[in-house]
Simulated scan of single mutants.
Amino acid sequence: MSANGPTEDELRRLFAEICNWGRWGAEDELGTINLITPAVRARAAATVTEGLCVSCARAVELDGYREDGPGDEWREPPVLSLHLPDTGQPGRGVGIAVDRFAITAHGKHTTHLDALCHITFDGRMYNGRTAEHLTSAGATAGDVALLADRLCTRGVLLDIAALRGGYARPGEPVRTDELLEAERAGATRVGPGDALLIHLGRDARWRAEGTGVAEPQAPPMVDYAGLHPECLRFFRERDIAVLVSDIGHDQVPPVGGIGMPVHIGALVHLGLPLIDGAMLEGVVRAADRLQRREFLFTAAPPVIPGATSALVNPMALF
């Protein structure tokens, strides 16, 4: 690939090289989730020896946040409203509070699952389906509801932030050799059906350089660390089933001639679901303390037919 990042032609050749279209049949809507077999789940369950459970979700910022840069103008702050109980007699009788949530699932401030229908490229989504499957009323293929009871497998943590001395920075995309180095450092091997968790140190960077939320003294975070598109080959060769990171996988500004190449390669061509914006500091601490990088990984979205995404609470069980 070109020294300054892959050209559009190079990326298109890469997408064709890794493509999983037709691998599990012409009607398939699950993509790499097919790799999470009962045997894979059984082996994953055997990694639970401590009974320690760690959430990999970040808190939803109900106090609001500002836009991070161009392209975020569609995203409104989340809203939680309560209908408060009224018993008619204060301090007596039953009281029932009722919640109403309004939230944009996609974005950098929420831990969310990208279903395969989230991204199209050249008018196509995973397995060659046309973009006509996306309507204002919802997607008619590859939606998040299909993943409601599928994401239970072995998780493997690759701690790129530790290799970088604290956190990854924009302009220095993670390359395949770093994935291999992190794998060796963790004394484990990423394999078929795994959920791969890549820790880039987003939160350490935010603490050091500003969060990009509603803090006047903090610089806007319009640049994001991410993966080089060449990592897509690693994901295909190892046959991972789910990709998780603490930011959005793609570097911003993008590497090469096409924006969001990791999202395009993963969702459209590999059929690889993504979990963006995870909170991985807790699982890193647990992995460091226990001196192991594998665990049982689960994530369950709500059953929302037609949705391209949903908030999730991924869990690592050691």
Results as ranks from 00 to 15, higher is better:
residue 83 H to I: 00
residue 50 E to V: 14
residue 177 D to A: 14
residue 86 D to L: 15
residue 292 R to G: 07
residue 158 L to R: 00
residue 268 V to S: 01
residue 314 P to F: 13
residue 258 I to K: 01
residue 73 E to N: 03
residue 17 E to V: 08
residue 28 D to C: 15
residue 96 I to A: 00
residue 272 L to V: 12
residue 181 E to K: 11
residue 106 H to A: 11
residue 91 G to M: 06
residue 206 W to T: 08
residue 286 A to T: 06
residue 6 P to S: 09
residue 216 P to L: 13
residue 125 M to R: 03
residue 94 V to W: 08
residue 283 V to G: 00
residue 143 D to C: 15
residue 284 V to H: 04
residue 228 H to E: 05
residue 62 L to K: 04
residue 243 L to N: 03
residue 81 S to Q: 09
residue 303 V to G: 00
residue 210 G to T: 06
residue 111 T to Q: 04
residue 201 G to V: 12
residue 49 T to Y: 07
residue 151 L to T: 08
residue 154 R to S: 13
residue 88 G to R: 03
residue 68 D to P: 05
residue 70 P to K: 06
residue 87 T to G: 14
residue 60 V to H: 05
residue 264 I to G: 02
residue 178 E to A: 12
residue 134 L to D: 02
residue 119 I to N: 03
residue 18 I to G: 00
residue 18 I to K: 01
residue 226 G to E: 05
residue 302 P to T: 12
residue 23 R to S: 13
residue 144 V to S: 07
residue 187 A to D: 04
residue 22 G to W: 15
residue 219 P to L: 04
residue 156 V to S: 07
residue 93 G to Q: 10
residue 302 P to K: 06
residue 239 D to F: 07
residue 227 L to I: 11
residue 280 L to G: 00
residue 87 T to C: 08
residue 99 D to Q: 14
residue 293 R to T: 08
residue 25 G to A: 14
residue 41 R to C: 13
residue 169 R to I: 11
residue 86 D to Q: 12
residue 259 G to E: 10
residue 218 A to S: 13
residue 305 P to N: 02
residue 211 T to F: 12
residue 239 D to A: 15
residue 213 V to C: 06
residue 251 Q to W: 02
residue 93 G to H: 13
residue 160 I to E: 00
residue 136 S to Y: 10
residue 20 N to E: 14
residue 30 L to Y: 15
residue 181 E to M: 13
residue 264 I to P: 01
residue 107 G to P: 02
residue 211 T to D: 08
residue 102 A to D: 11
residue 278 A to D: 02
residue 136 S to E: 08
residue 274 L to Y: 03
residue 59 A to I: 10
residue 34 N to D: 14
residue 29 E to Y: 11
residue 33 I to W: 05
residue 161 A to L: 07
residue 119 I to W: 12
residue 304 I to N: 00
residue 12 R to S: 03
residue 217 Q to A: 12
residue 299 A to R: 00
residue 231 C to Y: 15
residue 74 W to K: 01
residue 20 N to D: 15
residue 15 F to K: 04
residue 93 G to Y: 15
residue 125 M to Q: 09
residue 78 P to D: 05
residue 57 A to M: 09
residue 99 D to C: 09
residue 232 L to P: 05
residue 310 A to V: 07
residue 86 D to S: 13
residue 27 E to N: 15
residue 153 T to S: 14
residue 1 M to G: 14
residue 43 R to D: 12
residue 209 E to Y: 13
residue 109 H to A: 07
residue 81 S to N: 05
residue 42 A to L: 12
residue 299 A to W: 11
residue 119 I to Y: 12
residue 280 L to F: 10
residue 195 A to I: 11
residue 115 A to N: 12
residue 240 I to R: 00
residue 67 E to Q: 14
residue 240 I to T: 05
residue 304 I to M: 07
residue 16 A to M: 11
residue 312 V to Q: 02
residue 34 N to L: 14
residue 54 V to W: 11
residue 8 E to L: 07
residue 77 P to T: 10
residue 257 G to P: 02
residue 34 N to P: 13
